[in-house]
Design a protein around this nucleic acid. Structure first.
Length: 607
RNA sequence: GGCCCCAUCGUCUAGCCCGGUCCAGGACGUCAGGUUCUCAUCCUGAAAACAGGGGUUCGAAUCCCCUUGGGGUCACCA
């Protein structure tokens, strides 16, 4: 696809949400954005967009893009997930300047601020390893009378919350009367000593009783009235900081200047601002991006896979009473109890969802980057498509259409916060598919062949083995398959004829009737003519253009045109009325296999 | 329920900030044709939207207000 020249659509004046809010304190330091996932699974497609925008913004402004791993939830985080997320980002072409990366030998290394960069090295980009830092600031807060240990158990709090909810009231943790805002008094000191002595406790932030205004670059000023915020927990009983606390400290100590994240975090921001003020930190520039939601307006979540599999199972059960949790357990090998729980939505086990999907042969919705990769989507199609969810370049192509096809380089030079929209966008898979098809078609044949092959070797090894190791064979197949592949996996589907055994004798009945047997077995007779001609073709002449013109000639001589001849040959070699173009198909198959297949076809219909 | 955000074709969106060039443009999808050895690709065309109601104004998709609708968030998750 030719890269189009672009021109600005309109002289749009960029004043929204006051771009005058420049970062006030460190004018010499570079812009730093960050993507800070929690390593509890694969990279979510929404996370990929957040990362992409952060990356693009940093690139556009000559800044740095940082990756930080928020693994303070000890129970759910895993190093394996962190590794997966880093790999997913890398695959998409979103490479971080700061924070963890995967080295050649597979170990995890970290890019850090180098000497002379204007920022001291931060050392650790995994939050779980920064606990001493959080504790230092925590103590500072306690001694300033802005945080205090609290000793209620989780259960007690939970019970109080239930009462409040039952009474249709918002639960707010009531600050103990003995705690004096901003004063490290005797009562607080006593609590602190109790906590230090090892008694189980959490630490709560003494929230300020003042209005907080978040100056958001996308949404404008968002006001939160005084008294809205309660004394939320900043350190858990297990000693790990709570998200809000860790984020604020990290953004400060890591030099983050711009926080761009999804709108679901908007209501967290006043907490962050309050914390920053209490700690004497700067407030970074915030930009909250619209959410990406499903077509039915629900939030796009990993649980959608469970929902989807559950629905498929229930639909099947409604049709066939013989299907039960027990029968499903028997056929999927999953635990019956877990399946029963899964069906009644008591758990959302991914494993069971996948097993059921496989059993009922329904594809699960792609939610994570890995899903898309596995299903044959190209990273450039994903980043292009996803960048248009909640942002657009506002440019036109020379023929006056909206510019919407572009690459990472373009994003890195054109991205800006001022063109981020406010409303959430639905994730339209059909359009993504179209982008993917276009991206595939934009690839030169050789490039497509090589990328398709690499993908097949990873995700369709059996197919890759059948195609073999010869580059020419891959190229030949790739050429035939490219225009009919919206995904790399489609390419394999389109090549199904290759997987067919040369000795197979099953042929699509309707297709045979129409193309071989109808009109007094006209198709078979055409096939015989073609076969006779094929036999005279030398091994070296067995090429797509020669075979194509040969079929064409037979059609002309028979007065039928190419169509009927083609269909007869197609059924003989593919067993069905659909296959890639015949010349290429026959060439990939080779002379011997092609003739064997035709012979089997005659054997099948000789009776 | 409290708080917060949002509102242009089915979907992503342009236009909105700086009101007239908009009986609203593009893309995906849909439908109808065409090209073609099948399936696709490709080409042409069509249907399809300013949530509703009030203002302001000579004039509103664009500015203001209300209503309605949608969403987010209220954890010892992030």
């Amino acid at each position: 696809m030719p890269r189009v020249r672009i021109r600005p659509a309109h002289g749009r004046c960029v004043t929204r949400a006051s771009t005058t809010r420049r970062y006030p304190c460190l004018p010499m330091n570079p812009i730093v954005t960050r993507f800070a996932p929690s390593p509890t699974g694969h990279l979510h497609i929404g996370g990929a967009r957040s990362a992409l925008f952060c990356w693009a913004f940093a690139k556009k402004n000559g800044g740095r893009f940082m990756l930080r791993i928020e693994d303070t939830d000890a129970a759910r985080s895993s190093l394996e997930s962190a590794r997966g997320i880093i790999e997913d980002l890398h695959w998409l072409g979103i490479v971080n300047d700061l924070g963890p990366y995967i080295a050649q030998n597979g170990s995890i290394g970290q890019h850090d601020w180098e000497a002379g960069s204007g920022h001291p090295p931060v050392g650790e980009y995994f939050q779980a390893k920064r606990v001493p830092i959080y504790n230092k600031y925590l103590e500072q807060l306690v001694r300033a009378g802005r945080a205090y240990p609290a000793f209620e158990s989780n259960e007690e709090i939970e019970a109080q919350r239930k009462v409040a909810v039952a009474a249709k009231q918002t639960y707010r943790y009531p600050r103990p009367a003995e705690i004096e805002y901003g004063n490290f008094n005797a009562a607080l000191e006593a609590r602190w000593k109790r906590a230090q002595s090892g008694e189980r406790h959490v630490v709560r932030f003494a929230a300020p009783n003042e209005e907080i205004v978040v100056h958001d670059q996308v949404l404008g000023d968002v006001k939160y009235a005084a008294g809205e915020m309660d004394d939320f927990v900043i350190r858990k009983a297990d000693g790990f900081p709570i998200y809000h606390f860790a984020v604020v400290i990290d953004d400060e100590t890591m030099g983050v200047t711009h926080v761009m994240r999804a709108q679901e975090h908007l209501n967290n921001t006043p907490r962050h601002v309050a914390l920053q003020r209490a700690l004497g930190f700067r407030t970074p520039i915030y930009a909250h991006m619209p959410l990406i939601v499903n077509m039915d307006n629900s939030k796009m979540s990993k649980r959608d896979k469970a929902k989807f599999a559950r629905k498929a199972a229930k639909d099947a059960m409604a049709k066939d009473k013989a299907i039960t949790a027990a029968s499903l357990s028997a056929s999927t090998g999953q635990d019956e109890k877990l399946i029963a729980q899964f069906l009644s939505a008591d758990n959302d086990s991914l494993e069971i969802a996948q097993a059921l999907a496989k059993h009922f042969k329904v594809p699960l919705p792609e939610i994570e980057v890995w899903d898309f990769r596995q299903n044959g989507y190209l990273p450039e199609a994903i980043t292009n498509f996803v960048s248009l969810l909640g942002w657009n370049p506002g440019l036109k192509t020379p023929d006056g259409k909206d510019l919407e096809k572009f690459d990472m380089q373009f994003l890195a030079s054109h991205f800006g916060i001022e063109r981020i929209g406010k409303q959430s966008s639905k994730f339209d898979r059909a359009k993504l598919l179209s982008f993917n098809a276009d991206a595939i078609n934009a690839l030169p044949d050789e490039v497509f062949a090589s990328r398709w092959r690499t993908w097949c070797e990873e995700f369709e090894p059996e197919f890759a083995r059948v195609v073999g190791s010869a580059d020419e064979r891959w190229l030949l197949l790739a050429r035939a398959v490219k225009p009919r592949a919206k995904t790399l996996r489609d390419g394999v589907r389109a090549s199904a004829f290759l997987l067919r055994s040369d000795d197979a004798t099953d042929f699509d009945a309707a297709a045979c009737e129409k193309n071989l047997l109808a009109s007094d077995r006209q198709g078979l007779s055409l096939l015989r003519t073609v076969r006779d001609r094929f036999e005279t073709v030398g091994e070296l002449e067995w090429t797509a253009p020669i075979l194509h013109s040969l079929i064409e000639q037979v059609g002309q001589q028979a007065g039928t045109g190419m169509g009927p001849v083609s269909q007869a040959v197609r059924i003989a070699i593919a067993g069905a009325a659909v296959s890639p173009p015949l010349g290429e198909s026959l060439a990939v198959l080779g002379k011997a296999a092609s003739l064997t297949r035709i012979r089997r076809c005659f054997e099948r219909f000789s009776a």
